[in-house]
Computed example of a mutant assay.
Amino acid sequence: MAARRITQSSINWTALAERVPENQKGFFTAFKAKSDGYLRRMMANPETSPKIDWDYYKARVPVQGMVDDFRKKYESLNIPYPTDNVTPQIEQQEKQSLKEVQEFVKQSNVRIAGYEAEVGRLKGLLPFEQMTLEDFKDAYPDQALDPLNKPTYWPHTPEEQLDYDDSKVPKEDAHH
């Protein structure tokens, strides 16, 4: 008979517990307790099956050859340990996930560098209280009024401009 024993736990519960969020601690504790229960029940069984005293049964069973037949069948019984055909799939998923994580980290580092550059640019600007209209136009060209290239009319809202198109604005239902 094939037997496989766990000599020690291959799970680092402490490292796993550090990664569990606070709102999931109860679930984690229940999972660990269930896992420990399974391990205890498995370890309570002997590594090999107990030896059978065939001579004892041969002396007690009146039918000739019955014990020998059982013994022959019992000793020829072979229960193979299940083959592991899932681990390669898991390893492939792990490699794929690792590639995705590395790609995400690379993209995140690019975004972080862009955000740090933007923060540096914003820190280098004059405070709004000290800016003139020209300083504001230099810092925010898309938001500033540009009377030379794109003049606007008072009150400088989109609705009051000559090129305003009210067909792009959703109409409100008239309440009668």
Rank of each mutant, 00 (worst) to 15 (best):
66 M>D: 08
60 R>M: 08
61 V>I: 15
48 T>I: 11
59 A>P: 04
65 G>N: 12
61 V>R: 10
11 I>T: 04
13 W>G: 02
37 G>S: 10
52 I>A: 04
29 T>Y: 07
26 G>T: 06
19 R>Q: 14
49 S>L: 15
20 V>L: 06
50 P>S: 03
18 E>W: 11
56 Y>L: 04
15 A>H: 10
48 T>R: 13
27 F>A: 12
49 S>H: 11
29 T>E: 06
56 Y>Q: 02
64 Q>N: 13
66 M>L: 15
54 W>E: 02
39 L>T: 12
61 V>G: 09
29 T>H: 10
20 V>I: 14
56 Y>S: 04
50 P>C: 02
27 F>E: 12
33 A>Q: 12
22 E>L: 07
59 A>D: 13
35 S>Q: 09
64 Q>V: 10
21 P>G: 02
58 K>W: 00
62 P>G: 11
62 P>Q: 10
50 P>R: 03
22 E>I: 03
36 D>F: 06
51 K>H: 06
38 Y>F: 12
17 A>G: 13
65 G>A: 14
25 K>T: 12
52 I>P: 01
43 M>C: 07
24 Q>T: 02
65 G>Q: 11
14 T>Q: 13
34 K>C: 04
67 V>Q: 01
50 P>K: 02
47 E>P: 09
67 V>Y: 02
50 P>W: 01
64 Q>D: 11
65 G>D: 10
40 R>H: 13
25 K>E: 09
16 L>R: 08
26 G>E: 07
39 L>W: 13
32 K>G: 00
54 W>D: 01
36 D>P: 00
37 G>F: 04
63 V>E: 15
51 K>L: 04
31 F>Y: 10
17 A>P: 07
25 K>Q: 14
15 A>C: 10
40 R>M: 11
28 F>G: 00
56 Y>G: 00
37 G>I: 01
51 K>Q: 06
29 T>G: 13
50 P>G: 03
48 T>W: 12
53 D>Q: 04
30 A>D: 06
37 G>C: 05
52 I>S: 05
20 V>H: 03
50 P>L: 01
27 F>V: 07
